[in-house]
Write a protein that binds this DNA or RNA. Structure first.
Lengths: 358, 358
DNA sequence: ATCGATTATGATAGCGCTATCAAAAAGACT
DNA sequence: AGTCTTTTTGATAGCGCTATCATAATCGAT
């Protein structure tokens, strides 16, 4: 008696009820199916009807419920982006490209952090894809170069695009630059500038891209008839700290190179520090070139000469491939983008030219 | 006759059929409802039954379909993260924290690029949230300081958390540091090191955080009885390029400061370049301090003294608040994290102390 | 006009899961 | 054993949309 049963209770404040497709259909005097067709941009709707439906949608602020759409069609407007190493500038670029394209296509990017442990990648990825009913997957390095991941993903019946893998793989579409060629050309540039004593900071030994970069360097040196001094070739992990350490090692040798090619810009940054600490001026005493054109390249002084890969365009292309509903052209392709050698201020001709024996 | 009707046809290669909940239910000899309860971790399931169901799930590799779950429950395991300015190191940190937490909670982060045009933000955000049935929203700067966005989002009936807003707002939960206090303490540190001629590079005039940082600087100067020389106070946009320009302006004055406080690390990096170009050594001729501890802070040489805000922890906390289903404690809170002044190598005592008249 | 070929629209039946409420089973007491 | 709680389980009815197939409308071309 004292307690008056409150009629609102039920589902309470769950969510302010959005208009549903049925409402649109009634107001526009068509069936839901026609509304659905308009929503999905199907071609076989009479222009007049289409306009009426579109107007109605706009008028009542209809928003399709993506869960329902996806349940009914087994397709989500989501593109998965699993990755590690999120602090790198690479991710930022990738996202700019990917998001600008998903935006146009009405899709979204679903991010997923990967385990630290590479052996978990494949299994996690499968769970991720299955649960979220992704329509596609963007595979950045190092995932795109992991055999177990590729094997697992290839069985998943979704469109995956590998972004900057080091080499093509028949089962997948790749968007990439020719890293080997880029490293080759950068080395040629160094040589053309009069350098013959050139050091190289390798990336992680187990990353294919890192290997290709070194291979390109090797080819250019060999072609030019220059010896490679192995005391000037060191390995790092694509981060500045270790690069600085090994850089100091190289620069404190009695005979040191006039130029060093770092496998990426972060390592080049480490090298800058090493040079400054050793009392060497860039580029007078030492030329440094990098790879990737990370944001840091222009923050450094002098600005870093490096190789630019158009990650933004590559990511956008990758998304547009996934978004292409055309469906019947699921042919994996190898799309090679042009790279660019950005001549900035960290490369100059050496003061004296010499070729030491390796 | 000639044409043998092929029974497979129908839905063709759509997707390799994953086991459904019904299969689990049958195999475990329970109803789907019980399976659903186990899946959702409800408490009222007999331990024995729960184990049987869990075993069955594992055995047949059951993966719940998140679209179906979300349609039935009007809840997606997605946290929206709208943002601009994706190249900043800030985003990387934010993602590390957010993703490590979503991972634990079985949720995902849905990224969305915002329009370049701030006046579109609110409307876009509403569409984004409604369509994707987000369970929460992370609002990083500058979105978290935009009144129209806050107004729109507050009506949306979803959990939103503002990440590093410049001040608290009663309608929302905030995770942040006290930027005013941090800037104040950093300035005190500068003063304690013997600097009295201190310049300041402001951030964008319209960002509240940037304003607070300057206010903290002002307070410390005033308290110490030091005059502010307005020729040493310039505005930038949180990016290195313009900072370098205005930095050169300040450093080429006849009377220049012995230290400059940049509103963020990117601007500090621009200042490094300006100093080097002007022939000044850091920190001998000029001390520089930054704010944010972006990745570049340790790539610079000498390493940058700066303020660290624990973005990773803040983002993780934000996600865990959204994930907290407890529901009946929707009280917005203002969670202040401790900042840290990272003493590195870009700050030293000035060679000579003087106080010029403003 | 009349017929087939096309194009536009609609009725129906789920997609895979959860909310709801009712029923059954298991304890806690006389 | 019998009654009353409390815990555990199940049957049913959608969530909001799309696939599918059938029907109706439209259009040429005879």
């Amino acid at each position: 008696m004292t307690t008056t049963k409150n009629p609102r209770a039920k589902n309470g404040a769950r969510r302010s009820k959005l208009p549903k497709m049925e409402t649109v259909a009634q107001m526009a005097n068509v069936s839901m199916m026609t509304v659905s067709r308009v929503l999905n941009g199907k071609s076989n709707v009479h222009p007049k009807t289409r306009k009426r439906v579109e107007d109605t949608m706009r008028k009542i602020g209809y928003m399709p419920n993506s869960s329902a759409r996806s349940l009914a069609s087994s397709k989500n407007p989501f593109i998965g982006l699993p990755y590690l190493n999120p602090s790198s500038g690479y991710l930022g670029q990738l996202l700019i490209g990917a998001l600008s394209e998903t935006r146009k296509k009405g899709m979204h990017v679903l991010l997923e952090a990967c385990s630290e442990n590479p052996s978990d990648w494949a299994e996690e990825l499968v769970a991720f894809c299955n649960q979220s009913q992704l329509s596609g997957l963007l595979l950045p390095p190092p995932l795109c170069d992991d055999p177990a991941v590729l094997e697992a993903v290839s069985q998943l019946n979704l469109r995956s695009v590998r972004v900057s893998p080091s080499r093509h793989e028949v089962r997948f579409t790749s968007v990439r630059i020719d890293e080997f060629q880029a490293a080759y050309e950068m080395t040629c540039t160094l040589i053309a500038n009069g350098h013959s004593d050139i050091g190289f900071l390798k990336g992680p030994e187990n990353q294919d891209g890192a290997i290709q970069r070194y291979a390109g360097f090797e080819k250019a040196m060999t072609e030019a008839g220059l010896a490679i001094n192995h005391r000037w070739i060191k390995s790092g992990d694509f981060s500045p700290g270790p690069a600085r350490e090994v850089g100091k090692g190289i620069l404190s040798l009695v005979s040191r190179p006039t130029a060093i090619f770092a496998s990426n810009d972060d390592m080049a940054a480490g090298l800058y520090t090493a040079a400054l600490e050793t009392g060497l001026s860039i580029p007078q005493d030492l030329s440094i070139v990098g790879f990737d054109d990370q944001p840091i390249a222009i923050s450094l002084w002098p600005s870093l000469t490096t190789v630019n890969q158009p990650i933004i365009d590559m990511a956008a292309k990758a998304v547009s491939i996934i978004a292409a509903q055309s469906a019947n052209s699921p042919q994996p392709r190898d799309i090679i983008f042009p790279f660019e050698i950005l001549m900035r201020d960290s490369l100059a001709k050496p003061l004296k030219t010499r070729q030491s024996k390796a």
